[in-house]
């Protein structure tokens, strides 16, 4: 049963493997270039396992000690997980001990696969989702570790490498734009965020932006 599920899950994770190895390596490399030992990216990629927040945490670790700010920043940056969780309430039902790990490892990519892919009828769905999540996490942690190790050996000007995260989100945005006919949610996301950025400044615009997004999509739902 497990083998079957593993074989079904693996092909879906291959694109993620390439992406995570690349992104994870840039992350590990970035941390190494800021002077952290390889254990930091290893630890952080395993326990935080939320790419964008890990990049943000690099900056947190380099500024003054303020764990409360770190906690709330993590809440805000990762608030989208709340919506993932709401979408997965039904699919993660009755998964026993696997449920804990499925939730722990619910990154954007694992969520996307587990939410959209229906495994073949002879494959156990619980194990399928478990392997999707596990494989993705293995790719990510390996990438981060490998990148940090490479950082000990290779030296080059890494200025601007953090743009890899921006590039990732821009491409995700473009992909989604082409897949969906209704562009209102995407436009709402960009519009509300830009507006709040200009009004509240870069330090505290995320919460108001999220509130405004929820208000706007709710309003447009009532209109229909």
């Amino acid at each position: 049963m497990k083998q079957n599920a593993f074989r079904a899950a693996l092909p879906h994770t291959i694109p993620i493997a390439v992406g995570f190895l690349f992104l994870g390596m840039s992350y590990g490399f970035l941390m190494r270039s800021k002077g952290f030992s390889v254990f930091y990216p290893m630890l952080m990629s395993f326990f935080i396992f939320a790419g964008s927040m890990e990049f943000v945490t690099v900056n947190l670790l380099l500024s003054a000690f303020d764990p409360v700010r770190g906690f709330f920043l993590a809440l805000m940056v990762n608030a989208r997980h709340l919506f993932y969780g709401i979408s997965m309430l039904d699919k993660y039902k009755n998964m026993g001990w696997k449920k804990f790990y499925l939730i722990f490892g619910m990154c954007d990519e694992s969520f996307t696969i587990n939410c959209n892919v229906t495994p073949p009828p002879d494959v156990d769905r619980g194990w399928f989702m478990f392997f999707v999540t596990l494989l993705n996490q293995i790719y990510w942690v390996s990438g981060a570790t490998l990148g940090a190790l490479l950082g000990y050996v290779i030296r080059f000007d890494t200025k601007g490498i953090e743009f890899v995260m921006t590039a990732l989100f821009i491409v995700m945005f473009l992909n989604q734009w082409e897949e969906r006919k209704d562009h209102r949610p995407a436009l709402t996301g960009i519009g509300c965020s830009l507006l709040c950025l200009l009004v509240f400044g870069s330090e505290r615009f995320i919460l108001p932006a999220m509130a405004l997004i929820i208000l706007c999509v709710t309003y447009s739902r009532k209109q229909r």
């Binding site: 919506f83 995700m172 949610p185 965020s193």
Partner: peptide, 12 residues
């Protein structure tokens, strides 16, 4: 919301 959040992340 997942679709709106990507826009937020780009701006972030």
């Amino acid at each position: 919301l997942p679709h709106a959040v990507i826009g937020l992340l780009v701006v972030y």
